[in-house]
Amino acid sequence: MLKVEGLYAGYGSTDVLHGISLTVPKGKVVSLIGSNGAGKTTTMRALSGMIKPKRGGVLLNGKSITGLDSHRIARLGLAHSPEGRRVFPTLSVQDNLLLGAFPRLSGNRPKGNVREDLESAMELFPRLKERRRQLAGTLSGGEQQMLAMARAVMMRPDVILLDEPSMGLAPILVDEVFKIVRKLKAQEVTMLLVEQFAAAALDVSDYAYVLESGRIALEGPAEKLKGDSAVRAAYLGGAH
């Protein structure tokens, strides 16, 4: 379980987040929706150690990970599929996936059967199976997004942060990405999802938070928020 308590974070002297609190229960999908500039990606970066929180706390399975470096947070079980994909372009698809399992191969996470999980990831993301020997930098944008997601899955984390998985994708690929999110949900993979298509995010989520100007403005079961008139007017009218 991931728990965030009174988190303040930002860049330089500017705070972007102003005391946000949220919880991601084990086996659930929680979405964080809001307009551009609301602080969604900053939240993800603060949770995964890409930036250091200024105040507040982040707990993973009851243990504080506040302010730890990203590699230490990953070893403790938090995987981040970041906005913009950030694959290793000069490595093959398969090698990118094996890098996702590095904490397991280096003894920092339970090892399990990495080769078996590699094949399972290929089955979950069949486009990657077809291109397993191809350099990641030559993949399409949608394929790179799937690779970033699969790489996070390969760590066998306790929680996955998915930051804007549909960004820049054609509608047919957006649908494919969300089908995969649903498959992960069916496997009870715990996820915190940041997504520009609020309707799609709420459809796949158990619970949701609405972020406005760095503060949690509203929260509740995803199905309830879908029916909220203010949420519909602000985020769902033109959503996918």
Rank of each mutant, 00 (worst) to 15 (best):
E212K: 14
R215G: 05
Q196C: 13
V181R: 05
F197V: 04
K179I: 00
L211K: 12
D203W: 02
V194F: 10
S205I: 09
Q196D: 06
A200H: 00
A200I: 11
R215E: 15
T190F: 03
D175E: 15
M191Y: 00
A208G: 12
K185D: 06
V177W: 02
K183G: 01
Q187G: 06
I172L: 15
Y209V: 10
Y207K: 12
K185T: 01
V177D: 01
A208K: 08
L173Y: 03
A201C: 11
R182A: 14
S213P: 08
D206W: 09
D175S: 14
L193R: 00
F178R: 00
E188K: 14
V181Q: 05
V189R: 09
G214H: 09
K183F: 01
D203F: 04
I172W: 00
T190M: 11
E195S: 08
R182H: 10
E188Q: 14
L193C: 08
Q196T: 04
L193H: 00
V204C: 12
L193D: 04
A217E: 15
D175M: 04
L211S: 02
Q196V: 06
S205W: 02
A199I: 04
R182E: 15
G214L: 07
V174H: 10
V210K: 08
Q187V: 07
I216A: 05
A186Q: 15
K183H: 12
V174K: 04
Q187L: 15
I216E: 14
L202Y: 08
Y209M: 09
Q196E: 14
M191E: 00
V210G: 08
R182Q: 14
D175N: 14
I172A: 12
V204S: 00
Q196M: 10
V210F: 09
A201S: 04
L211G: 04
T190Q: 04
F197R: 12
A186T: 10
T190K: 05
V174R: 02
E176P: 01
Q196W: 04
D175F: 01
R215K: 15
I172G: 01
V194G: 02
V194A: 06
V177M: 02
I180F: 08
D203H: 00
V189G: 01
K185A: 13
K179W: 08
Q196G: 00
I180W: 09
V189C: 09
L184R: 03
A198V: 12
A217F: 14
A198Y: 06
A208P: 04
L184V: 05
L184D: 02
L173S: 07
V204R: 03
R215T: 15
L173E: 02
A208S: 15
D175G: 13
E212D: 14
E176V: 05
S213D: 10
G214T: 02
T190E: 07
G214D: 03
